[in-house]
């Protein structure tokens, strides 16, 4: 089968890979780009474990061929933390125990990222409906929802703080 060049900017770094048209984005991220943080759960678009952001919008990377997103900017869980400093969402997931086995966590974090970026004033009800796109088998969602709400509040406070006050 022919291979196709696919250029992706993943977490700010641009790479070109040569892959079969049928190769799923999630497999390109995991195998060709060495980013195993995006997981495979159901491979039919239901569970959300493979969620990444394409040009800022969440998508299922298991029901997306990499060739379909040629030229896009992709964000994955590996792009969230700034070196040693966790993203507020990661930190709040840790604090609230918004994870148990950790398998759905990367997809859940990326979806939560989109929810907060779209609406910094997101309400707890909106968070619950928003994360309903992603299954979690361990937590029953309650502490995930708590974590997303407190991360949103923190991110808003950081954004609202006068410039000098920001760390």
């Amino acid at each position: 089968m022919d291979k196709y060049d696919v250029t992706l900017t993943v977490n700010g770094r641009t790479s070109t890979v040569s892959v079969e048209a049928r190769k799923l984005l999630v497999d390109v991220l995991r195998e060709d780009l060495g980013l195993p943080g995006t997981h495979i759960g159901c491979e039919h678009g239901v569970c959300g474990t493979c969620t990444v952001l394409r040009d800022g919008a969440s998508i299922r990377s298991c029901t997306t061929f990499a060739v379909q997103v040629d030229g896009s900017e992709i964000r994955t869980v590996e792009g969230l933390a700034d070196g040693a400093t966790l993203h507020p969402l990661q930190d709040e997931f840790w604090d609230k125990q918004g994870l148990q086995c950790g398998y759905c966590t990367p997809g859940m974090l990326m979806r939560a990222c989109e929810i907060i970026e779209q609406n910094p004033d997101v309400t707890p009800e909106q968070v619950r409906e928003g994360i309903a796109s992603n299954l979690c088998r361990c937590t029953g969602y309650q502490f995930i929802a708590e974590a997303v709400c407190s991360a949103a509040a923190r991110m808003k406070a950081d954004a609202d703080a006068p410039r000098g006050a920001r760390a």
Binding site: P36, T76, L80, A81, W94, G102, Y103, T105
Partner: peptide, 19 residues
Amino acid sequence: IRRVEDPKFLRGRGGYIGD
């Protein structure tokens, strides 16, 4: 306390069998 397991999972470095 915060779970000692969590940082690797939060960063997508869980090291599952598929990884």
